[in-house]
């Protein structure tokens, strides 16, 4: 047994066990904490399968943003309220049997097809010089499959707007003012975030990084700021806030229509590709960050009009 295999075995078995432990927790608070640990370990395991881009995103979004959203909404749902009992025993047994059979079949298919040749790797690398990006993943999401990413930013915008419209204040629960250590931490981290976020956007054209990683980091800063003494992201003028929510999607759409004159929807000429990718990436990073921050504020009940400047 090689050391690599040993690490892979330990990591994947821990992931499985953590998933089980997460689902066995009796209160929502405990389940969220376990899920966040699972997310961190998942990010670690993706480094082992040659996916540093995804690992960065998962580390920021899995334990970070998803964890923050879940914890924030526990303010309204109750941290320690135990889960109601699950369905009846026969139904549970049937569900376990069904999922077990599906799992066995999927594992069998996976092992059978494991040695088949790879899909489009060669094609993706072959056209990399014309794509305007030296990072193949950035080339995929913003050039080859730009259409998917456009729609995805649309999904994020629709979700953020829905959270925005559903926002209502949480009654009778005042937020404790942040302590001195948190205020110091926020003061130290803010410049660092403001430095790393643009760097992430820029480096995405060459190495692991890009709009999603930058956006996720920006939302981390947003969440920290919301918890701090001056929650400026939701004290922004409403029009400005809404405009920055939609900026990424609108600019992406404008670029898509603008490049139509070169032939096809979202087909950039190779000479100009890197310029358009940078425009889309910077605006999308901003919008992703603001959308996720607004979602956090909405889940925590801090978004409603009557609590503008909620503290």
């Amino acid at each position: 047994m090689t050391p690599e295999l040993l690490i892979d075995l330990i990591l994947s078995i821990s992931l499985l066990l953590l998933a089980m432990v997460t689902l066995r927790q009796r209160t929502p608070g405990d389940a969220v904490i376990q899920l966040m640990i699972f997310g961190l370990l998942l990010a670690l395991s993706w480094l082992r399968v040659q996916a540093p881009d995804l690992s960065l995103t998962e580390a920021a979004i899995g334990p970070g943003v998803t964890g923050a959203l879940l914890l924030a909404s526990l303010r309204r749902i109750g941290f320690h309220r135990p889960f109601p009992p699950p369905a009846s025993l026969p139904f549970r047994a049937a569900a376990s049997l069904g999922c077990g059979i599906v799992g066995v079949v999927l594992s069998w298919i996976l092992l059978q097809s494991w040695d088949r040749p790879q899909g489009l790797t060669e094609l993706a690398y072959q056209h990399l010089p014309e794509s305007g990006s030296k990072n193949p993943i950035t080339a995929v999401i913003l050039n080859y499959r730009g259409y998917d990413t456009l729609l995805e930013i649309g999904v994020l915008l629709v979700a953020a707007l829905s959270v925005y419209t559903l926002a209502a204040p949480v009654r009778g629960k005042a937020v404790k003012p942040p302590g001195a250590i948190f205020r110091l931490y926020l003061r130290m981290m803010t410049p660092l975030f403001l430095l790393v976020v643009p760097y992430m956007v820029w480096i995405g054209g060459y190495a692991p990084g890009g709009a999603f990683q930058a956006g996720a980091l920006l939302s981390g800063l947003g969440v920290l700021t919301l918890l701090g003494p001056r929650p400026w992201p939701i004290q922004l003028r409403r029009k400005l806030l809404r405009a920055s929510l939609a900026l990424g999607f609108i600019l992406f759409l404008v670029v898509a229509v603008w490049t139509w004159r070169y032939g096809d929807f979202l087909t950039y000429p190779p000479a100009e590709a890197s310029k358009w990718i940078l425009v889309i990436e910077s605006s999308c990073a901003l919008s992703i960050g603001i959308c996720l921050t607004v979602m956090f504020a909405g889940c925590a009940g801090w978004l409603s009009e009557e609590r503008e400047g909620f503290r």
Partner: peptide
């Protein structure tokens, strides 16, 4: 090298998953 096309799909998927989670939580609240 790893296949970048599934990587792009998953990157999209992660963001869509977190949007869905946020929306469900807001509805649940």
């Amino acid at each position: 090298a790893a296949d970048p096309i599934p990587h792009g799909m998953i990157l999209t998927g992660i963001v869509v998953a977190v949007s869905g989670t946020g929306l469900f939580l807001a509805l649940l609240g």
